[in-house]
Write a protein that binds this DNA or RNA. Sequence first.
RNA 1: GUCCCCAUCGUCUAGCCUGGUCCAGGACACCGGCCUUUCACGCCGGCAACAGGGGUUCAAAUCCCCUUGGGGACGCCA
Length: 500
Amino acid sequence: MILLILLLNKACAIQTHTLYNLIIKPETKINMGNIITRFAPSPTGYLHIGGVRTALFNWLYARHNNGKFILRIEDTDAIRSTQESTDAILDGMRWLGIDYDEGPFLQSNRLDIYKEYTQKLLDSGHAYYCDCTPDMLEAKRKKALEENQKPKYDGTCRDKGLKQGHDMVIRFKTPLTGATIIHDDIKGNVSFQNTELDDLIIQKSDGNPTYNFAVVVDDATMGITNIIRGDDHLNNTPRQINIYEALGLPVPHFAHVPMILGQDKTGLSKRHGATAVTMYKEMGFLPQAIINYLARLGWSHGDQEIFTLDELIDKFSLKNVGKSAGVFNLEKLEWLNSQHIISTPSEIILPHLMPFLKKHSLPVDDKDYITAGIETLKKRSKTLLEMADAIKFYLADDIEIDKKAGEKFLKADMLSYMEDIYLRLEKLEKYTEKSLENIFVQIMETHQIKFGKIAQPLRVALTGTTVSPGIFEIIIVLGKKRVVKRIKNAIQYIKMIKTS
RNA sequence: GUCCCCAUCGUCUAGCCUGGUCCAGGACACCGGCCUUUCACGCCGGCAACAGGGGUUCAAAUCCCCUUGGGGACGCCA
């Protein structure tokens, strides 16, 4: 029965690569372990960095155990859920490379299933109709808080035996006695007295299920074996376990990961700066750096800091997830990003850098040339944004000489050296590292100067600024044509300054 | 307020389960130095923590209790 529902749901879900997986990669299915995890965001905003970590842990756990990872969109809040948010979540996950084996399933497509399970609870006496109005409830809640009590539903309708009617909700009959114990893979055993709980609403007056009920039905019918989520859900868990038990469904494993905090140690929010993944993309972070950072925030593997995706999959374990919340630290993310930029082949960085170049309206046609430029900038860029800025001098047709740099280094006394460099380079037929080296040795000997004397002026001539990759690196990458042209321009520049 | 969770350098963490090898290790940041054609990268060194108090024990960062501090939950949001 459950299987049938699952299949029906699959069929109507907007999903193509479930089929793809079944057809193209059947061996993967056969070899799969029995672990099934899921990420279940609600589409009420952008993809939050905290959500990404939850998704990542679920994904890593599934991949590590050769299991399945499912994406489910929890859109039972008809008012706040939007298609744009769903798209943002999907885009974000695609960019990060967190792929899913099934889904995205939409809860809004599964209303019949929730109805069916609600009826089961009604039939077995585990649920009842309630006509208490939101206003009434709100007043009681307020009063309880004022009296320093825990606001709980008082069970007004629990034994009224109300029949179905308009504007009614359905509540779950929480056991009045006993305790519910969570066996959490991260927190250990956590016990709640059932008297602390109350009769929660499982179906809203608009007919939609509430979160605590829908998750249980979904996780059970989708066969989720391990629920890994933020520990802000720990308090919900005993309610959910009670529902599993009332329904006679097997209770899955739970693992509640600590939350991510801002600098001020309160929950990470917009106040702390960027929380949407897209913002990190725009700031020039590589997805693998974000994944590395998020994985290491709360999880560790000895002293290792830098991980590739494969290493993460190989080494990830719930056992090494810490219990305490962590503060988000942009500096460390930046450092990790710089490390990943260094270790990622330039050809792979190129497509990530492209949007930034286009934004600067730089010519992007000569891919090989840009890639060579990237190679020289990798060690010097913490972000792609910085790299895009630093790479300008390679790509711009006419470089602009920074005023201060020009005044300091392109002075009259440089003229003879520059002219000499110009003449020698122009004649140079074999434009190689070796031959260039020879030329500069000759120049230094002829003029009896040290390389330091001409290095900065040359740098300014070639890049317009005092900061750049190594002189020889840029001379090689720029190529003879550009180098000669820029030196010629610098000579003009010096002459102009001289006469004015 | 009630309930639940948590507690090692400023931050992320190792160590804690299975007490001694820890006057606590690594990383980011910061501060020196080296390398050097600039800036970086890299390398070397430095600063810096077991929240407090009680136990248990020959011995506690590690086990127990209390206090304090922080976080979370208490919605017809998820």
